[in-house]
Design a protein around this nucleic acid. Structure first.
Lengths: 208, 208
DNA sequence: GTCTATAACACGATAGAC
DNA sequence: GTCTATCGTGTTATAGAC
């Protein structure tokens, strides 16, 4: 009983707030410039903190980055986790596609942070990929494979199906500049078009 | 007639060779660490040159990077350029998909260099996107649209069709680590599987 | 708990001998 | 044309006053 703590997990309220504040700023900076491109100065300024003060809450620049990635993976995989084995197969897939596309629209910074990390060879996420992502994907791939074997979806490799959903939805976040340049200034929001296209694509691919 | 020059474009043979040698090394380093993550030291070492000697051939680190990107764009868009308006529509699309996937397999460094640049907002390629990529895409999108209007392909947004081909094929280069982790060590080469999947996907999407 | 000052280092780029 | 030595800057991280 310390009396001075008001926490969930060994942190005071102030610490929790500051850490959240730094995380928010760091997400901004890391997702724009990458890990090496980002500087502690930038993050401190974005968080309205002095640099030494920031380094009081996190021991190093890398610690901030790792903290962000650790918290991100669960959020990022949540839509995949929500695929319901008892639902209608095509509905479940299309709902998954829509959720992932919505995340690309509403969380482009997280998408880019993730993309930077994977492109670089996931130097700060080795355990997460092997121990969290792979088992989840394998499990849901089995569910999808079951649907295909029951004739409720047209057959296709379930792992590559999941890859394709990731790839296509995240493209609209990570390559936003390219998408907007090609579509031209008249298209203020590419996402409704993207949703129509992707629903059509996966319906034609999977509807029995 | 200078006599000492053996060139195509105002460079001696030695200069041309060294520049090629530096470009090769820089592609390695930039595609692994990104622009900011790469150091001139690393590039010089990879090119078996001293740092000052490298900076004798290129005025700055940024100049090397720009040089790479300028030479890359044409190569990168070549498969799209080769779509033949007089060919069989589905064949042309599937050939394009296969070519792009082959490039992901054989030129993953170029793919990553490109991905880094676009994710960052294309700070060194603003002109190229607007003046080279967009016109080419618009032109080929018109060809595809014509095929769809003639009933030779099922209708779909041609711009997003091209986005999806880019996204899916480049995914296997840029997110290689993730793909291999999920597929597991038994799959030594993901590309044959990927080709099968993508051919199926676009055939079901487009075959009339 | 927060700030100023600064250490310690790596980086890009240059100068000058050879 | 190539090398060694080095400058100046920007960076992470720490020490110590308040």
């Amino acid at each position: 009983m310390t009396g001075v703590k008001d926490n969930t997990g060994g942190q005071t309220r102030i610490q929790r707030d500051k850490i959240a504040q730094i995380s928010e700023a760091a997400l901004d900076v890391f997702s724009t410039h990458g890990f090496r491109g980002a500087t502690v100065d930038q993050i401190a300024k974005a968080a309205s903190l002095s640099k030494p003060n920031l380094l009081y809450y996190f021991p190093s620049k890398e610690a901030i980055h790792t903290h962000l990635l650790e918290n991100l993976l669960d959020t990022w995989l949540d839509p995949l986790r929500q695929i319901n084995p008892d639902g209608d197969p095509l509905d479940e897939i299309l709902t998954y596609v829509r959720r992932k596309l919505t995340m690309s629209r509403d969380m482009p910074r997280e998408s880019r942070l993730f993309a930077y990390e994977i492109i670089q060879g996931a130097p700060n996420m080795g355990a997460g990929l092997e121990e969290v992502l792979k088992p989840l994907v394998d499990g849901q791939a089995q569910v999808i494979r079951g649907w295909m074997e029951d004739g409720r979806l047209r057959p296709a490799d379930p792992h590559h199906l999941i890859f394709s959903i990731w790839s296509l939805t995240q493209h609209y976040a990570d390559f936003d500049v390219q998408v907007r340049t090609v579509l031209g200034p008249k298209v203020t929001d590419p996402f409704p078009q993207a949703e129509d296209y992707l629903v059509t694509l996966f319906t034609r691919m999977l509807a029995p």
